[in-house]
Design a protein around this nucleic acid. Sequence first.
RNA 1: GCUCGGAUGGUGGAAUCGGUAGACACGAAGGACUUAAAAUCCUUUGGCUAUUGCAGCUGUGCGGGUUCAAGUCCCGCUCCGAGUACCA
Length: 945
Amino acid sequence: MEYNFREIEKKWRQNWIDEQVYKVTEDESKPKYYVLDMFPYPSGAGLHVGHPLGYIASDIYSRFKRLQGFNVLHPMGYDAYGLPAEQYAIQTGQHPEVTTKNNIQRYREQMNKIGFSYDWSREIRTCEPIYYKWTQWAFIRMFNSFYCYDKKRALPIDELISAFEQNGTKGLNIACGEEMEFTAKEWKDKSKVEKQKILLNYRIAYLGDTMVNWCPALGTVLANDEVVNGLSERGGYPVEQRVMRQWCLRVSAYAQRLLNGLDKIDWTDSLKETQRNWIGRSEGAEMAFKVKNSDIEFTIFTTRADTIFGVTFMVLAPESELVDKLTTNEQRAEVNNYIDITKKRTERERIADHRVSGVFSGSYAINPLTNEAIPVWISDYVLAGYGTGAIMAVPAHDSRDYAFAKHFNLPIIPLIKGCDISEESFDAKEGIMMNSPVQGKEIPGGLILNGLTVPEAIAKTKIYIEEKKLGKIKVNFRLRDAIFSRQRYWGEPFPVYYDENGLPQMLPDKKLPLKLPEVDKFLPTETGEPPLGRATNWAWDTINEKVVSCSLIDNKTVFQLELNTMPGFAGSSAYYIRYMDPRNEQELVSPQADKYWRNVDLYIGGTEHATGHLIYSRFWNKFLYDIGISCEDEPFLKLINQGMIQGRSNFVYRINGTNKFVSFNLKDQYDVTPLHVDVNIVVNDVLDIEAFRNWNPEYNTAEFILENGKYICGWVIEKMSKSMFNVVNPDMIVDKYGADTLRLYEMFLGPLEQSKPWDTNGIDGVHRFLKKLWNIFYGNADSLQITNEAATPEELKSLHKLIKKVTFDIEHFSFNTSISAFMICLNELSTLKCKKQEILEQFIIILAPFAPHITEELWHAFGYKSTICDAKWPEYKEEYLKEDMVKYAISFNGKARFNIELPADMSKEDVEKIALTHENSTKWLQGKEPKKIIIVPQKIVNIVI
RNA sequence: GCUCGGAUGGUGGAAUCGGUAGACACGAAGGACUUAAAAUCCUUUGGCUAUUGCAGCUGUGCGGGUUCAAGUCCCGCUCCGAGUACCA
């Protein structure tokens, strides 16, 4: 009987759906294991062959864990809100919901064909109200919380209000936008509106004025990656920097916890490092500088307090509020001119173009350690958003300050003995201090750093600053708060309306979800409002607590609802929690479900989410942990990044000016143009000439110059894309070879975490393996050719070697090597002509996670029901693996010379004796006495002469 | 610039604790079966030298080092990839 994979796979796909074998529920009798894939954005192009890589790996792991007796939660869903569907809607008028639904259906069909063991009853879609209700709910919780650094957690905002009422801001160590100070009395005297405004400075979800990329032509804020060279990625319109009032999440409050948490989780070092860099903790000091002839004082942040004696100027960011205060009348015109110029430059331009620019403010600051007056400059190399937006410049020991000083001819004072600063600054934190203070400028009782090493100087300066109250030790983070508003249609609406004072108010929980309204077009309004401004029913009636027509807005009881929507990461930040209890309408997750499933044990996905989703998710989870919803502080215990699958494009070579094509190895003899050719009509780099003629009418009459009767194509690795004709669709592979072959092949391609090109050149190998397996069972017969004879030691050894290897490999996510092991074992078994059920049964079980369809069919042929229900992962037994004879390599001075086979239980001394007296040994020893003999058990006997 | 990876036959890749490098697979060459093709099976396959027979040398990007023994560990480079970037 032939291996008819099409029929087998179809049959079992249906059976699994009918029997609901993948449905899981909380089961206290079994240990839980949660395996999660990063859910996809359902794009119009469908899945290509690169998408399933991680899904196959996680599926193998899930099935493996299930066979080991774990209760495995393995869900899938869709990150359904997003830009492409909205852009498509703008162009075609097609509602994004319709496009999204169609795309989801296609994704689902494609995934079903690959035989994944998802519990589809738990499917979630971020754009469905039953799901986004809880995104909105969590947002309201964040609005009603603040972050306390002392308790290291989020707390209800009411606690902050009572703290203000009792002591004002005294003694509070809490996350905020700008530092505020007031007494309890001052607080009580403030109006209700003022109080609300102050509270926004502390809420975890807050409305704040932040610098954004604003694209006037598109009428929306753009994310950094949507802006290319100062122009919008879509349409190429200019983008400007603008301060806008936006919803933000105070992610920065969690910076230290996000950093600490990395030590507790099993992620790759490189990914942890990426997150550490992104969080960017830097320890330093904040120091106050007085302005000469003024009572103004400003603070700067520095990690090099030790270089204070080398400060020769100060620099303010152009956006800093201090600029206006410190600019003197003589300099005002010049400063304003400079500010105007920098405003027009986009963030991109500033980053791309590092030319030195700046302007003198006219003011001088007083160095608190030397009492010298130093000029205050303004330059765009200082960023408003980091630290205090002001720096002390030490040109001798900072390359940017150095460039600035050289350009404007400002003094440079070297502080490290022997450093050469004629060409560039000396930035390293090493060496012995000098000029600190400069000889002859010592202040009685002042700080002296001369002769100390840099680390000693840093420590001493910090202590001095604190003692003299010149400043304080401060830890700064690069991690910034997340901007949470988008001027988009296709996203979660905010459960927010604006009251008569323009202050945001949350909708009551019981009225959630606030559903996305219908609009006539998916564009901004004529007055520049976001698309939701087009909705006619988008006002909140506070009396009847429902959405009503905008025409009823009176700003007394009926108010405007928020017009922004939430960004893409809103829905993906806590989806893994929702899978635990996806249909619960009363709670985000029931405490029972949460306590059972806890968090994700294994998360597989791409590395591109390192500084986005994986930071937001950890933040979101920590918040839910603080408010008692999630019982775990970290959401993803182990994380594996699957590599990207690149395209492998094929080329044909057309002789210029003709319709003649020359084979790859002969092309150098002609004047040719390489042309992309559809990889689907090329097999092992050999062109299917007939298919090529039919591929494009232009090539109907094409002629070919062949080598060895074949047309060989050239190839190159590039991104998988339609325009390169290198997109390979998984459906096609499933159709041609079957899902099991696709699964095995994608794993066999190479290490999971490595990026690699898709290349079907080796797919026959794994397909042959499955055919060979089938032939062991059926051969040419139509009935099973299996016996009940007892297995021989050789057969048992081959099998148990395999069990040991595959168990180890799966646990280490080394799927490519386990497939090799299957092939080796199958070859051994066919050499032994093994047809024994005892052996083959177990072979089938361990292959089941990799190739579920064929194994299910063969398992069923044994008379069992389903590997998913009645199979158990076998344990290997060392006793079967024992070798009777051990091969020793006899080596002289580390060079292996010959092999001998000796009984495994022979003592070291006897092995030594035999090795030395072996006839071949005398040749190498030449009568000399060996200096040393080293025996590595079961491997090598090394004789040192 | 900084951080983190990587470099092994014609190709994808193995070598899990420093122990006979090249498993497994593809491709290629030769052979068997077949009217023929497909499918299947067998042999060879890092390079060089030798080949009637054994065999020998060399070899994991480059240059050093440690060790009886290095693809693996240490030092110094080269190249490639990823992330990040005026973060004071």
